[in-house]
């Protein structure tokens, strides 16, 4: 399968980095240069180049086998590209060390419902990175966990076994785990698979809020075309037959950035609960 990404403003050709007044102040969070991936002599991704800048929101859609998950797994270093270079925050992936800046929510289909772990244990595990090696969790870490639970509105579930939760609740747990480090980049792989429509909508509203009010860059694979189109535009900004990129650039969002994610998400949740109405995905208040 051939995939060649057209270059738009945020995109870059191998030798031609485009800068402009809007984007120049934003750091490149993810950059791919001529990345290809083959598996068992089959080309899954071919000569892909693109850049994601700070506070961009990239929605990635594509049919089964288009290479969506492969691309995400290469970006977070779980797969090595056959050729080409991937950088995170300017550093090559294989040398990248600041993993706490990245929140990754993988597809949740591998979760064993019998696994003996509470919601609190799962969320806290978001802190167990290489810089916490051999260190015990302290009060500040537990506070971060409480905040993340609070932000996602799952405080009352914290002592429940993860397998007892509904799909939507589990997804909030994994998002809380990804948020516990206050990441600069959130990578979500089909976060709403198997979740009912209403929960999906409130989930996306939360994501949208984080994008608009906090300094978080998003890369999200989704099968929910309505959500992607309503927030990121009807037409993909780039892509070819099977893999399409919908983009909302950083300069299209408001500049106000709130610092306290837990507090602001709690406010949003209360607002949503008090309105008791389905919040439209494209709604920008």
């Amino acid at each position: 399968m051939q995939l060649r990404i057209a270059v738009r403003r945020e995109m870059m050709a191998q030798s031609n980095r485009i800068t402009n007044a809007d984007a120049s102040c934003h750091q490149e969070v993810i950059s791919l240069e001529d990345v290809s991936f083959s598996f068992q002599q089959q080309t899954v991704i071919s000569n892909l180049s693109f850049a994601v800048k700070e506070r961009d929101f990239i929605g990635l859609i594509g049919t089964n086998g288009a290479g969506k998950t492969t691309l995400l797994r290469m970006i977070v270093g779980l797969l090595k590209p056959t050729s080409g270079t991937i950088r995170l925050f300017g550093e090559k992936v294989d040398r990248f060390k600041q993993w706490e800046r990245i929140g990754y929510v993988p597809q949740k289909n591998s979760l064993n419902p019998l696994f003996p772990a509470t919601v609190r244990e799962v969320v806290l595990s978001g802190l167990y990175g290489r810089n916490k090696l051999f260190k015990k969790m302290n009060k500040a870490d537990h506070k971060k966990c409480e905040d993340a639970l609070h932000a996602m509105g799952i405080d009352d579930l914290k002592d429940k076994r993860i397998g007892q939760l509904s799909g939507g609740q589990q997804q909030r747990v994994f998002l809380a785990r990804a948020l516990i480090n206050n990441p600069s980049l959130l990578i979500l792989d089909e976060p709403t698979v198997g979740i009912d429509t209403e929960t999906q909508e409130s989930f996306f509203h939360m994501i949208k809020h984080m994008h608009q009010h906090h300094n978080i860059t998003f890369l999200m694979v989704s099968h929910d075309l309505d959500m992607i189109r309503s927030y990121l535009g009807q037409e993909p900004a780039a892509g070819n037959g099977k893999l399409k990129f919908h983009i909302k650039h950083s300069h299209e969002t408001q500049d106000c950035v709130e610092n306290d994610l837990a507090h602001s998400l709690k406010g949003l949740r209360e607002q949503m609960e008090s309105r008791k109405e389905v919040v439209l995905i494209g709604d920008r208040n």
Binding site: R73, V76, G77, L78, K97, W99, E100, I102, Y104, P106, S110, F115, A117, E121, V122, S125, G126, Y128, G129, R130, N131, K132, L133, F134, M137, R177
Partner: peptide, 23 residues
């Protein structure tokens, strides 16, 4: 005792452990 939290994470979600920078 020294690595129970890392072992937990690798056991619960090996991909997440790798993305957290654990070897």
């Amino acid at each position: 005792w020294l690595q129970v939290k890392e072992l937990f994470l690798i056991t619960f979600d090996e991909d997440a452990a790798a993305v957290s920078g654990l070897p």
